[in-house]
């Protein structure tokens, strides 16, 4: 795989251009952030199908529902923190309860937005979105997968939330990497323990797995869970049964996010020792992305530590597994 850096928002913007070309019903709405979300590229190419809704996320969401009601396929785009937070009731009551075909692009996801600080770092949207009936939630791992996921979102009838980020991040898939909505991808096979990650953390998980194999002789499976809802129960249960321990990693609050969604599947089917790597009940702060990923415990070394500790628990008899 190429070791290229590219922001996932680029993948979203590329997909919108392709979709705009293919389907005249595609429309895009933004809330005064089109230069940051890169929907300005769609706006330049298809000005009649782009609506700047001003700094008014709630109205933007309702307008999108109306457009969907009339047969359009709206992509509502702005920072994830605003779209999932300010417009949550509109997403719940109008979009999800009404099951309208609205696609939501949550830009600038995660702590790695950096210097803008806590108000702009979206750390809760996976939790906020995944609890809503009818909603689908996708957190792609790189720019290529974001493009594929955005293209695939149109094939799904109903609301979809796609999270992407601003910072350039490693491109870890290529054009040939399969992408199927709802289907987790095993990026690395292993038998001792499984790390399940989404978004930027997939790369960190792969780095951790490689080092763990070299340094500790551990065989670590790494799964890219790009679709958080509907969740791939089969892949999770298989990992739990075959490797007996799971660590999850996400650039999101540890509570309520992807890790929690996985834990829900695991406890229902085959409880195994688990650890959730994520942000521990804190708001973010200003800093460079790499400083923040370190401060908030999201770099590969934290995943390694969680893997080693969880693997130790796995070796204990069940009664002695308490942390």
């Amino acid at each position: 795989m190429e070791n290229k850096m590219k922001a996932t928002r680029e993948g979203y913007a590329e997909a919108l251009l392709i979709l705009g070309e293919e389907n005249p019903d595609i429309v895009v709405l933004d809330a005064d952030l089109s230069k940051s979300t890169l929907t300005n590229r769609f706006a330049e190419k298809f000005p009649g199908r782009f609506f700047d809704m001003g700094i008014a996320e709630q109205d933007m969401m309702g307008t999108a529902a109306g457009l969907a009601k009339a047969g359009k396929i709206p992509f509502v785009t702005t920072y994830g923190v605003f779209v999932s937070g300010r417009a949550w009731d509109q997403i719940r009551t109008t979009v999800c309860y009404g099951c309208f075909n609205v696609k939501i692009g949550g830009a600038h996801g995660g702590i790695s937005v950096g210097p803008d600080g806590a108000t702009h770092q979206s750390l809760e949207e996976i939790a906020l979105m995944r609890v809503l009936p009818n909603m689908n939630v996708i957190v792609p791992c790189d720019a290529i997968e974001t493009r594929k996921a955005t293209l695939a979102a149109v094939e799904i009838q109903g609301p979809v939330y796609i999270r992407f980020g601003r910072e350039k991040t490693p491109v870890i898939t290529d054009e040939d990497t399969p992408y199927e909505f709802g289907k987790a991808l095993t990026f690395r096979d292993g038998s001792d323990i499984t790390v399940i990650a989404c978004g930027y953390e997939v790369g960190e998980a792969l780095a951790a797995a490689e080092e763990l194999e070299k340094e500790n002789g551990l065989s670590v499976r790494v799964i890219n869970l790009h679709t958080i809802k509907p969740i791939d129960e089969e892949a999770i249960v298989k990992a739990a049964k075959e490797t007996g321990a799971i660590v999850t990693a996400e650039e999101h609050q540890a509570a309520g996010g992807m890790g929690s969604a996985i834990a829900e599947v695991v406890v229902r089917n085959c409880p195994v020792p688990m650890r959730l790597v994520g942000i521990e009940d804190r708001f973010g702060e200003s800093g460079q992305p790499e400083e923040l990923l370190e401060e908030f415990g999201l770099t590969s070394r934290f995943i390694k530590k969680a893997v080693l500790e969880t693997f130790e628990r796995k070796k204990q008899p069940a009664a002695n597994r308490a942390v």
């Binding site: 709630q58 109205d59 933007m60 529902a65 109306g66």
Partner: peptide, 12 residues
């Protein structure tokens, strides 16, 4: 929430 939805339909 209704007027926003009405606007979306009207725009379409």
């Amino acid at each position: 929430q209704g007027l926003s939805i009405a606007n979306g339909i009207a725009m379409a």
